[in-house]
């Protein structure tokens, strides 16, 4: 059992950890970057293990998340630079890539990146028809026609494109 001081031994010393993707690639990451993920931080506080295996995050997604963590752990970069990094990070990425990113960041609990990616995904879905979303993202419609009609009825106002005025 490792005893730790209040802040944990990890933030104090400059150490590295190895993170392994599901397809076996290993990434050497500074602990200061790794602990920006709440999940990784918890593991590192609980275990001496320097090798963390992420059994369901592929190497491409993991590489992107680590690039993000390393940038945000870099004290030499201003907040403005980090913000513009975030914007460029998600721009031009395929929806599929974003999907794995949102899953990975949700699992790893990297809140800021998760929100940024979710926003980007939302922008893609904005003003799209339900049928388009199903087709484009290969989603099975598991409603009966009656159930779908009922759900439309419950929030009928949302389907009314007229701007509601008070007059």
């Amino acid at each position: 059992m490792v005893t730790t001081d209040e802040k944990g031994p990890l933030t104090a010393k400059k150490k590295s950890v190895i993170i392994r993707s599901c397809d076996g690639d290993e990434f050497l990451v500074s602990e200061s970057a790794a602990v920006l993920s709440t999940s990784l931080k918890k593991i590192l506080e609980e275990k001496e293990d320097r090798l963390i295996h992420l059994s369901d995050i592929d190497n491409k997604t993991l590489a992107m998340v680590i690039a993000y963590l390393s940038t945000h752990a870099d004290d030499g970069l201003s907040d403005d630079l980090k913000r513009s990094f975030d914007q460029e990070f998600v721009s031009g990425k395929e929806f599929d890539v974003l999907k794995y990113l949102v899953l990975a960041t949700d699992t790893l609990q990297v809140t800021c990146l998760c929100y940024t990616v979710a926003k980007k995904m939302a922008d893609i879905m904005k003003n799209k028809l339900v049928e388009w979303v199903r087709r484009e993202f290969d989603i099975q419609n598991d409603y009966t026609p009656e159930a779908e009609a009922e759900i439309r009825r419950l929030d009928a106002w949302a389907w009314d494109d007229r701007q509601l005025e008070d007059d």
């Binding site: 949102v102 998760c114 979710a118 995904m121 939302a122 879905m125 904005k126 929030d155």
Partner: peptide
């Protein structure tokens, strides 16, 4: 379609109320 509900909720939370209600019809 198999994204966990929590992830879909995160995406939906970045949309307008009417968009959220419409996308509830997806599945």
């Amino acid at each position: 379609g198999d994204l966990p509900e929590s992830c879909i909720a995160l995406v939906l939370s970045r949309l307008d109320p009417s968009e959220i209600c419409k996308l509830a019809c997806v599945n």
